[in-house]
């Protein structure tokens, strides 16, 4: 657990460092408060009230929650589908030949180009956000799972063969545990992508709430209230960090002793 605590500590230190650099850059370049508000006025903005009379922090938390729900749904779906695809590709040469080009081609599709069509089919709500988050999380997990399972040493497979293990035992007793450290690397990338995917889905398509919506409105009212844009950027970064740290914690506990010893 000490490792996670120290990671949080170093993240906080980096945030502090970024704040100092921001102020130094502002001072040196002589940039005005409209383009670069002071760090403290950005933070103070969290304490203000919106035009609806709601505390700004509550307003922000509600929107973070809306994005987080969609990201998490997408992450869970993407991880599930990605692992299944990865297992299928790794286990069957035929499936591998068929699916790998598709997976790679689909990964090259710019999501912003597909998003309008998704909005037409699924509407502007949570479904579209989750769908795009799923799409973005699917690939890193698929590839990590495939690579992880393909890296199982031939000798370990032969061991399972000599003891008469079924395909199911090989999958759950050898392939998945062996691939797990690599799958977690893919999961970390996926966790960050899931937040990006949900925000992208909220941006230009008339979503009712979420961080993407707040980014757009803050941008529109930038000239009156520049702090808001930086508040929502901070909120988005924090959400991404929470997701990635969450995955790291799960990895830490599920890999157990393997995170202390030689792994692969």
């Amino acid at each position: 657990m000490g490792r996670i605590a120290s990671q949080i500590a170093s993240a906080l230190f980096l945030a502090l460092l970024a704040a100092v650099l921001w102020e130094v850059a502002k001072l040196v370049s002589g940039t005005g408060d409209i383009k670069m508000p002071h760090v403290w006025s950005i933070l103070a903005h969290f304490g203000t009230t919106t035009s609806q009379g709601e505390p700004y922090s509550t307003f922000m938390l509600l929107n973070v929650w809306s994005t987080a729900k969609a990201s998490l749904t997408g992450l869970v779906l993407g991880v599930g589908l990605g692992m299944l695809t990865g297992i299928a590709i790794a286990r069957s040469r035929l499936v591998g030949y068929g699916l790998t080009p598709l997976v790679v081609a689909a990964q090259a599709v710019p999501i912003v180009a597909v998003a309008p069509a998704l909005v037409l089919w699924l509407g502007t709500g949570a479904a579209t956000k989750a769908a795009i988050a799923t799409y973005l999380t699917y690939f890193p997990v698929t590839i990590a799972t495939t690579r992880g399972i393909q890296a199982v040493p031939a000798e370990s497979r032969e061991l399972f063969q000599t003891i008469g293990a079924s395909k199911r035992t090989v999958l759950f007793g050898l392939e998945i545990p062996f691939a797990l450290p690599l799958i977690f690397v893919g999961l970390e990338t996926a966790a960050a992508f899931s937040v990006v995917g949900a925000i992208v889905a909220e941006l230009p398509f008339g979503s009712p709430d979420g961080l993407g919506v707040v980014i757009l409105t803050s941008w529109q009212f930038y000239i009156f209230q520049p702090e808001a844009l930086y508040c929502v950027a901070l909120a988005a970064c924090s959400l991404g960090a929470v997701f990635v740290l969450g995955i790291r914690s799960i990895a830490y506990f599920s890999l157990g002793s393997r995170s202390q010893g030689e792994v692969l």
């Binding site: 000798e155 370990s156 797990l180 002793s257 792994v263």
Partner: peptide, 8 residues
Amino acid sequence: QAPNLLPW
């Protein structure tokens, strides 16, 4: 030839 133990 290798012990081939499962590290987990």
